[in-house]
Amino acid sequence: MEIIRLENVGFQYKDYEGNVIEAVKNVSLTIDKGQFVAVLGRNGSGKSTLAKLLNALLLPTEGVVTVFGRDTSDADNLFEIRKNVGMVFQNPDNQMVASIVEDDIAFGPENIGIEREEIIARIEWVLKAVGMEEYRYAAPFKMSGGQKQRIAVAGILAMKPEVIIFDESTSMLDPEGRGEVMDVIKRLLKEGMTVIFITHDMNEAVEADRIIVLDKGSVVMDGKPETIFADERLPLYNLKLPLVTRIAKELKDGGLPINGSVTRLEALTEELCRLL
């Protein structure tokens, strides 16, 4: 089932000197319910602008963005769209609004007019979903980056959105924090959530069902990870193969009869164990 549709979407703005900048150009695509979509592209390729167009933080200057069939440019739809498309940003410190975890989580649902009893039930449920039950009364400022980011996700979840967008949400975290956020995402996907994941980390992108590559505001590649990572144009967009694939490819180029496009370490290990 399609939940997001972009038709010939463009977004332009003027910089301080009055030059027109086209951050997003002529993008048409659809995203289905339950998909795990990674968005890649060089710095300044339009990824964050695209993300903000999906929950009406920005409105397209050209074309139409529809979420659940609702046009984001229609002000009457804003409430429903923002309620259903949550966003987790890069820096967890910028997303905390309260000094106690449960207050922080309650902020979103309170704002959309959820009843107190229901909010209390949701707090329990979301803390469980992100594996932070014992932190209900803790202070976010004392937590690690990964924990804070999980609280940020919990705060979004409490609004029961259909879609969560992660805008480089793991880039400031240590490996453990990244792992924690990735585990939460996998859990959400199992429950039918749609996840859009903006990243520079190819090893994270491998986990997605679909990868969209942006360059200069346009979609230049769109497909399954295996297809994307087999595409020779990758370096043109400042991207690289995941490390495992890079090693596999060089081994193959060096004369080893193995599959040069594996993306997972286990698969590469298997290939090599067969040969060596």
Partner: peptide, 10 residues
């Protein structure tokens, strides 16, 4: 290299 794209990191 935090926040840079893969080529930027290299």
């Amino acid at each position: 290299s935090a926040g840079l794209d893969p080529k930027g990191k290299d």
